[in-house]
């Protein structure tokens, strides 16, 4: 209810309502963008552009729609455009051996993190997070929307602009791939 109220105020041009919404969604939106593009600097840029886009398009927002789904759709479109522009290959399936997690994006020298950074990141995200990063963007996004954002399948379908059946198919394939990757990388080990 508070979200609807803030959104209604934002539609009337209330700057404080915008500030409240930024605070409310900052972590979730950034996490989603980071899962999409994988690079913190790029996710931060997209985070800022997304909120500017919200300010520009809030008049076109239909209050009957779910605001969260609308917000994540804006962010998704920006992230997809960005990936298409910067690393078109990252929109496809991983080009390397999925078990090693090598993708077109990770092969780019400019984006290759230092070994120490990789180790820290690995410690931070654990095996599941590390394996998830090796999946293609299509699977990463459906996993993060379902398990991290805890969106309903209908909401995910709205964000991705696909039918419900497609969401289920992607979810199943994403989980299958994630499990396959984990079994290949960490055979016989505890995944968690």
């Amino acid at each position: 209810m508070a979200v609807e109220s803030d959104v209604a105020q934002l539609r009337r041009g209330d700057l404080d309502a915008l500030s409240t919404l930024v605070t409310r969604y900052q972590n979730r939106l950034y996490r989603y963008l980071l899962r999409m593009v994988r690079q913190p600097a790029e996710a931060e840029d997209l985070f800022q552009v997304t909120w500017i886009r919200v300010a520009e398009k809030i008049q076109q927002y239909d209050p009957q729609r779910n605001f969260e789904a609308w917000l994540f759709t804006l962010a998704r479109n920006l992230a997809i455009d960005h990936l298409r522009r910067i690393r078109p290959e990252s929109l496809d399936e991983p080009i390397g051996d999925e078990a090693t997690g090598e993708t077109g994006a990770t092969r780019l020298q400019s984006h290759e993190p230092a070994p120490i950074e990789r180790m820290v990141a690995r410690e931070r995200t654990g095996r599941v997070g590390e394996s998830m990063e090796s999946l293609s963007v299509m699977y990463r996004e459906v996993l993060t929307l379902r398990f991290e954002e805890e969106m309903k399948l209908e909401e995910i379908a709205e964000v991705l602009s696909v039918p419900l059946s497609t969401v289920k198919t992607r979810l199943r394939r994403a989980l299958d791939r994630l499990r396959g990757t984990m079994e290949a990388r960490f055979p016989g080990e505890n995944w968690l």
Partner: peptide, 17 residues
Amino acid sequence: TWRQLASGLRRLPTPQP
């Protein structure tokens, strides 16, 4: 096994901007 995998996904740390 699937439940553990799902649990791992739900418990991924939330990165903050």
